[in-house]
């Protein structure tokens, strides 16, 4: 499944970023950060198009040799970025989509927490569990 999941604030700083512990964390940070370029591009292209911003899923942001980076943006411009291993071919677009939706739901729960201050790093355990469930292999 996903090897790295990140939630990025509207202002492009990370609210949450987690990657598989076996691999170099730094590399994923760089990857996710770089993917914001494409996210920005897609968002601005979306803005230019129709005002119908229902579609939150941005699709494949950019592929690298080893990973595929997918993006998703909420209506409040909080970005979700998911890095998937390229060798993991069993993941279809639809599955990525549903993973994002799950992530979004969990994020919404975090935001609903009255003790959570929007803009702070996410430390919710429930959110963490959701991410964990996406990062372990499905089989």
């Amino acid at each position: 499944m996903a090897v790295c999941v990140a939630v990025i604030a509207k202002e492009n700083y990370p609210l949450y970023i987690r990657s598989t512990p076996t691999e170099n964390q730094l590399k994923f940070h760089y990857t996710v950060h770089t993917s914001l370029d494409v996210v920005d591009e897609k968002i601005s292209a979306m803005g230019k198009a129709v005002m119908d911003q229902r579609e939150l899923y941005l699709g494949l942001l950019y592929p690298t040799e080893d990973y595929k980076v997918y993006g998703y943006v909420t209506n409040s411009k909080v970005k979700f970025v998911m890095v998937v291993d390229s060798s993991n071919t069993s993941l279809r677009d639809n599955e990525i989509r549903s993973m994002f939706r799950k992530l979004h739901n969990s994020y919404t729960d975090v935001m609903c927490n009255p003790f959570y201050n929007p803009g702070d790093p996410i430390q919710s355990r429930a959110f963490d569990n959701t991410v964990t469930s996406m990062m372990v292999p499905a089989c």
Binding site: E11, Y13, L26, H29
Partner: peptide, 13 residues
């Protein structure tokens, strides 16, 4: 850039 966007690990690196 890493500083202004608040990315700690890349910043440190």
């Amino acid at each position: 850039m890493y500083q202004s966007e608040g990315w700690e690990l890349p910043l440190t690196h």
